[in-house]
């Protein structure tokens, strides 16, 4: 692995583009193909690529284990929190129409929908990224079993 100069340089070249592409997929998901699930997987794939080429310890330096493990429940909480918030604003659970104004006019309802979808997709992104990296770290951190026989 030490001698794979091309691999290492190319990985470092690719990584920013992978993460910017993930952000693009996430934030442009309302207008083109994309969304939280895809963006989360792409962002996780970037970290996994880094971990494969440079080793797991290098990867845990930039993306520590506690962070990804905290991201797993955080996303679900954000998602559920948006639902609870819309309930507090007097609507149904996960009813984004009332996020800012209650009762909403049509324009305000659309505004609320935009923000609701955006926040929920962020929640999905956080959970998916966290889970995928967590799963990868769990597999990579496992030592190989020595055969008994």
């Amino acid at each position: 692995m030490r001698l794979d100069t091309i691999l290492r340089v190319c990985t470092k070249l690719f990584l920013p583009f992978i993460w910017v592409f993930a952000l693009y997929v996430q934030l442009h998901g309302d207008f083109g193909p994309g969304g939280g699930f895809q963006a989360g997987v792409i962002a996780a794939a970037g970290v996994i690529l880094y971990a494969i080429v440079f080793g797991k310890s290098a990867a845990t330096r930039i993306v520590p284990k506690w962070l990804v493990e905290a991201m797993v429940p955080l996303g679900v909480l954000l998602y559920a929190g948006v639902g609870v918030y819309s309930m507090l604003m007097g609507g149904n659970y996960l009813d984004y129409d009332v996020l800012f104004h209650s009762p909403p006019t049509h324009y305000e309802a659309v505004h609320g929908q935009h923000w609701g979808v955006f926040l929920v997709e962020i929640g999905v992104l956080i959970t998916v990224t966290g889970t995928m990296i967590t799963i990868f770290y769990a597999f990579a951190g496992r030592g190989r079993r020595e055969d008994r026989n």
Partner: peptide, 27 residues
């Protein structure tokens, strides 16, 4: 919702419960 990508709109807004459930499954 004024969101051109119908898939995103249905995923996050019309069928928000479904997606909440899926996120919980991934969690």
């Amino acid at each position: 919702a004024d969101i051109p990508n119908v898939v995103t709109a249905v995923l996050a807004s019309y069928r928000g419960y479904d997606t909440l459930g899926e996120t919980a499954v991934i969690f």
